[in-house]
Computed example of a mutant assay.
Amino acid sequence: MKLIKFAKFLSVSALSAMLLTACGGESDISTKEKSDDTAQIQKEDNKKEPKVGTRSNPIKINEIASIDTVTYDEESNEYKTKVDLSVEEVVRGAEAQQKLKEMNEFNEKAPEGYEWLLVNAKVKVVESETEDYPFTIDGIMNFKFVSESGDIYSGDIIGTTDPDFSFEMYKGNEKEGYISGLVKAGEEAKMEYDSWVGNKVFFNLK
């Protein structure tokens, strides 16, 4: 299990660059010193592991992402909320298509060059500032599939799942359902969750 925290920060080098620009280039730091500092910072950054939950370091199957998000009331007031989100199982290709057919007989076959991908996911509302308004999450609105080559699939064609991953939940509640999508046949893909409040988390699907 891994805990994900999202924070925004401004590096010293970025702040220095802003001050230099604002002062028209007048600074006690010489060009040579700035170059040396930048090279050292870049060298240190290259050693850092990618942030957990990013596309280059996605959450693994059966690991839990703890995500800071918000719940809205009818007047669009925000209440801080924390949810746990995880991918439990992933099937694709002929197996996914068969499962989708069992869920709904009207689910179509994947178009040529594509295959169905079916994700079994869990979500739990761990914390919330409100007990009066439910947190909302939706497999179509909040999730996208991203190909190995960086293509964000449109999601224009989806499979009807049962249970569907579309919930309104209060604090302490946990739900499980399926998210479906089409991906290029044989190409690896990741799933992106967008909280709509700045937090995006990627999940590995293999």
Score class of each variant (00 low, 15 high):
residue 1 M to F: 10
residue 6 F to P: 03
residue 8 K to Q: 12
residue 8 K to A: 14
residue 10 L to V: 15
residue 12 V to Y: 06
residue 13 S to F: 12
residue 15 L to C: 08
residue 17 A to G: 14
residue 18 M to G: 06
residue 18 M to D: 10
residue 19 L to D: 07
residue 20 L to N: 11
residue 27 S to V: 11
residue 27 S to A: 11
residue 28 D to S: 11
residue 29 I to M: 15
residue 30 S to D: 10
residue 30 S to F: 03
residue 33 E to V: 14
residue 33 E to H: 10
residue 34 K to Q: 13
residue 34 K to W: 13
residue 35 S to Q: 14
residue 35 S to E: 15
residue 35 S to C: 10
residue 37 D to I: 15
residue 38 T to V: 13
residue 38 T to R: 09
residue 39 A to I: 14
residue 40 Q to K: 13
residue 41 I to F: 06
residue 42 Q to G: 08
residue 42 Q to A: 15
residue 43 K to C: 13
residue 45 D to H: 09
residue 53 G to N: 05
residue 55 R to Y: 08
residue 55 R to Q: 10
residue 58 P to A: 05
residue 60 K to G: 07
residue 63 E to K: 12
residue 63 E to N: 12
residue 64 I to R: 07
residue 65 A to W: 03
residue 66 S to Q: 12
residue 66 S to F: 09
residue 68 D to I: 11
residue 73 D to N: 13
residue 74 E to V: 14
residue 77 N to A: 14
residue 78 E to D: 08
residue 79 Y to E: 03
residue 81 T to A: 05
residue 82 K to H: 08
residue 82 K to Y: 07
residue 84 D to K: 11
residue 87 V to A: 01
residue 89 E to N: 14
residue 91 V to R: 01
residue 92 R to H: 12
residue 92 R to T: 07
residue 93 G to I: 02
residue 93 G to Q: 03
residue 93 G to F: 06
residue 96 A to E: 03
residue 100 L to K: 00
residue 100 L to G: 01
residue 101 K to S: 13
residue 102 E to M: 09
residue 103 M to C: 05
residue 104 N to M: 07
residue 105 E to Y: 06
residue 107 N to K: 05
residue 109 K to N: 15
residue 109 K to R: 12
residue 109 K to T: 14
residue 111 P to K: 00
residue 113 G to T: 02
residue 114 Y to P: 00
residue 116 W to E: 09
residue 117 L to K: 09
residue 119 V to Y: 02
residue 119 V to P: 00
residue 121 A to T: 02
residue 122 K to E: 05
residue 124 K to L: 14
residue 127 E to T: 11
residue 129 E to F: 09
residue 129 E to N: 12
residue 131 E to H: 09
residue 132 D to R: 14
residue 135 F to H: 08
residue 135 F to M: 10
residue 135 F to A: 08
residue 136 T to I: 15
residue 138 D to S: 04
residue 139 G to W: 01
residue 140 I to H: 06
residue 141 M to C: 09
residue 142 N to Y: 05
residue 143 F to D: 00
residue 145 F to Y: 01
residue 145 F to R: 02
residue 146 V to Q: 03
residue 148 E to S: 13
residue 151 D to P: 04
residue 151 D to I: 08
residue 152 I to K: 01
residue 153 Y to N: 00
residue 154 S to R: 00
residue 155 G to D: 01
residue 159 G to R: 01
residue 159 G to K: 02
residue 159 G to T: 03
residue 160 T to M: 15
residue 160 T to Y: 10
residue 160 T to P: 04
residue 163 P to F: 01
residue 163 P to S: 05
residue 164 D to K: 11
residue 165 F to P: 03
residue 165 F to T: 01
residue 165 F to G: 02
residue 169 M to A: 09
residue 169 M to Y: 05
residue 170 Y to R: 03
residue 172 G to K: 06
residue 172 G to F: 08
residue 173 N to I: 15
residue 175 K to W: 08
residue 176 E to W: 03
residue 176 E to L: 04
residue 177 G to Y: 03
residue 180 S to I: 03
residue 182 L to C: 01
residue 182 L to Q: 00
residue 184 K to C: 01
residue 185 A to M: 13
residue 186 G to W: 04
residue 186 G to M: 04
residue 186 G to N: 08
residue 188 E to A: 15
residue 192 E to C: 13
residue 192 E to W: 02
residue 192 E to M: 15
residue 192 E to I: 07
residue 193 Y to I: 00
residue 198 G to E: 06
residue 200 K to T: 12
residue 200 K to G: 04
residue 202 F to N: 05
residue 203 F to R: 02
residue 204 N to V: 06
residue 205 L to E: 00
residue 206 K to T: 11
residue 206 K to H: 10
